[in-house]
Design a protein around this nucleic acid. Sequence first.
DNA 1: ATGTATGCAAAACATTTGCACCTGG
DNA 2: CCAGGTGCAAATGTTTTGCATACAT
Lengths: 148, 148
Amino acid sequence: MESQDLKRAGLKATLPRLKILRFLEESDQRHMSAEEVYKALLEAGEEVGLATIYRVLTQFEAAGLVTRHHFDEGHSVFELNLGEHHDHIVCVRCGRVDEFVDEVIEARQHRIAEEKGYEMTDHALYIYGVCPECRKAGGRRTRAEGRG
Amino acid sequence: MESQDLKRAGLKATLPRLKILRFLEESDQRHMSAEEVYKALLEAGEEVGLATIYRVLTQFEAAGLVTRHHFDEGHSVFELNLGEHHDHIVCVRCGRVDEFVDEVIEARQHRIAEEKGYEMTDHALYIYGVCPECRKAGGRRTRAEGRG
DNA sequence: ATGTATGCAAAACATTTGCACCTGG
DNA sequence: CCAGGTGCAAATGTTTTGCATACAT
């Protein structure tokens, strides 16, 4: 029961929070913006104010239930936290997101933070590229392609 | 002479562009938001409209003169491109930014993209942590600390 | 009850754009 | 001269906030 998850996270089990959490769990999309959650809930007949979506997602983040990502898009995307850490590879054409884990990279990051004297709290690794489907499709390119 | 750099980049050597480029080169801060560039130029007595700063920085990015970063802050920061690629480690308390290069991580990223069938165009790696000075200082924490 | 959460509308930001005017080549 | 650049103000898109009302415990 999700209300238990919420209480365990220190949050009152209110209806909007339950709807949002349930939706994140049931959605097949793992990465969603606040707006997307809002619209999807609307379509499902569940009305939750957009401001509430933002507030709740921010609380979920603070509680460790979700992770907030800043892809190169100008808005945040949220992802339900399922325990296992992973990084992301994002298609610059269609926006598709794949996940991966690489122990070598993880280890090097920790070592680098240590060498610099930092106490590492978090990290974000995004690889940008053109996904297999878009490569086949060929064609038009986005502003995000090819910089740094 | 900077006007040559601009022309080489395919940009007319206008006064605002020169001021901005010069400022980026002379500033001791390597990572600056549009707003920061704007204010710094103002203080230096150089008036350039904020909209122009945004336009010019975006053009510089397209021309490869600067790189745009999306740290966990809600706005873009720009960095003059000096040729050598590097990644960043950002202090979640004071905002300090250090740079590093790790060939092993670079190589693994390419391999991962390849395995997933992506044609890699770019990547962003940010390590977040508490820098040596802030660790000594101890104390209050920011929202950004401890998730993922 | 009562402290918190929500909804709505307004505010706050970061960034972009329309348009009349200015400027570099 | 003239295409392209700039400034300003208004528009946009995202996220936050103030406040009166509704809710969980």
